[in-house]
Design a protein around this nucleic acid. Structure first.
Lengths: 188, 188
DNA sequence: TTCATTATTTGATCTAGGTCAAATGAAAGT
DNA sequence: ACTTTCATTTGACCTAGATCAAATAATGAA
C-alpha cells in the first residue's frame, strides 16, 4: 500500500500538494521486534505502515502484555493519544516484522496544516476513521463470545491473523492463548 | 456546563469568533425518552449536552439493547461515524432525561471550517478526545473483571452512574443486569 | 545438526458471571 | 389510593472460558 495513493483516497490533492506533503514524511526501515515507543515516553511520530506489521500494547500489573491494536500495511500507526497531545504514552509501540514506515512529527503536521487547508480535512478524516475502527472493536468485545470475536478479527484483519504470534491476538481479543488455540482447532 | 466555556477550553477563540460559532448552533429542548436518531437513519446533527443525559445503543439479533455510550452534561453527543460520514447509523440515539441541547449540522460545521481556521483545530481536538475516551473504555472492557469495570464507570462517570437505569449501565459495561445489581450490593 | 528458547497445543480442573425464574419495589396513569 | 407496568433484587443452577500444568512443536543461535 502506497502512502500517496492512500492520501489521495482521503482528499483530492493536486500533484504539487501531494509532493509538498510527502516531502515532510521520512522513510524508515525498522527491523523486526524494535520498540518505537515505550510506556511513559512521548510518542513523537505518526507512522504510515508501508510494509510490515506493528502493534501497540501495555503491560498489566501482573506483568502480562495486552495487545491494544495491530497496524497492518496501509494503516497509520501511533500511540494516538500521546502523539496528538504530546503526553506520556500508556502504551508500547513495536514492529513485529521488518518494516518500512513513513514517519512524520506533530510539528511537521502543524506546518502542513498551516500550509495546506486540505490537510485539516485529511487529519480529521484519518482520526474519524480511527475512531470508527476502535468503536467497531469495542462492539465486538462488549457482547460477543470468544468465537465471534475471533471471527471478527479474521474478517477485519485476515492477513494479520496468520502473521503474528497467537498470544498477541488472544490478548487483543480479550481471551487467553489457550482459548484461542482451541477455537482455531475447531475452525472451518 | 456552558458551550461557550467548553469551546474556549479547547481553542482560544476571540469574542467575535466565539459568537460567530455559537450562532450556528440551535438550542433544543428535548423531552425525556425521545429518540434523536434511529438505526439506519443518517445522524444529521452533532449535539452538545448542556443539561440532561443521552445515550447511544444498538439492538442485538436476540432483541436485547446494548448501550454503546453515555453522554453527560458538557459532552458532545452524536452517532459519530454516521454524522461525520453522513452514512447510515448503526445506533439509536436517545435522551434519558429532559434535556437542553445545542445542535449543529455538518453543513454548518463545514461553513465554520471555511470561515474560521481555528475551527479545524477545534474539530480535531474534539474527535481526538472522543477517540481517547473510547480507547479508555476499550481497555476497561478488554481484561478487567465485572467489578473493575464498574469501578471504572464510577470514576469516569460518577454522576451518570446514579441517574440512569441499571440495565443501561450493565450492558454498557458488558455484563448482565443481575451481575451489576449484585456488585452494587457489595459496594462500599 | 544440535541444543536452547519460545510458541502452541492439549488436558484436567475451577470459577466468574451468565441464564432462568420468581419476588419485591418503584413509577405513572386513572 | 389502586392498578398496571417497568425496574431491581434475590436465589438456584449452569456453562464459557480462565487457570494450572505438562507435552509438543517451531524457531534461532552456535
Amino acid at each position: 500500500m502506497d502512502l500517496a495513493d492512500l492520501l489521495k483516497e482521503y482528499v483530492p490533492f493536486t500533484h504539487d500538494e501531494l509532493n509538498g506533503i510527502l516531502a515532510h514524511f521520512t522513510k524508515e526501515s525498522i527491523p523486526k521486534n524494535e520498540l518505537l515507543v515505550r510506556e511513559g515516553q512521548i510518542c513523537r511520530k505518526l507512522y504510515f505502515v508501508e510494509k510490515g506489521i506493528g502493534r501497540s500494547y501495555y503491560i498489566k500489573e501482573d506483568g502480562k502484555e495486552v495487545t491494544q491494536w495491530f497496524f497492518g500495511e496501509g494503516a497509520f500507526m501511533s500511540s494516538v493519544d500521546s502523539f496528538f497531545n504530546q503526553s506520556q504514552s500508556h502504551y508500547y509501540l513495536e514492529v513485529l516484522e521488518d518494516a518500512v514506515l513513513y514517519s512524520i512529527s506533530l510539528d511537521n503536521i502543524d506546518l502542513l496544516l498551516a500550509q495546506y487547508h486540505k490537510m485539516e480535512r485529511l487529519v480529521r478524516l484519518i482520526t474519524i476513521d480511527m475512531l470508527t475502527k476502535v468503536v467497531n472493536k469495542l462492539n465486538a468485545l462488549q457482547f460477543q463470545t470468544a468465537r465471534e470475536r475471533y471471527d471478527y478479527m479474521i474478517s477485519e484483519y485476515p492477513d494479520i491473523s496468520y502473521r503474528v504470534p497467537l498470544g498477541h491476538i488472544a490478548s487483543y481479543l480479550g481471551m487467553t492463548q489457550e482459548t484461542l488455540s482451541r477455537i482455531r482447532k475447531n475452525e472451518g
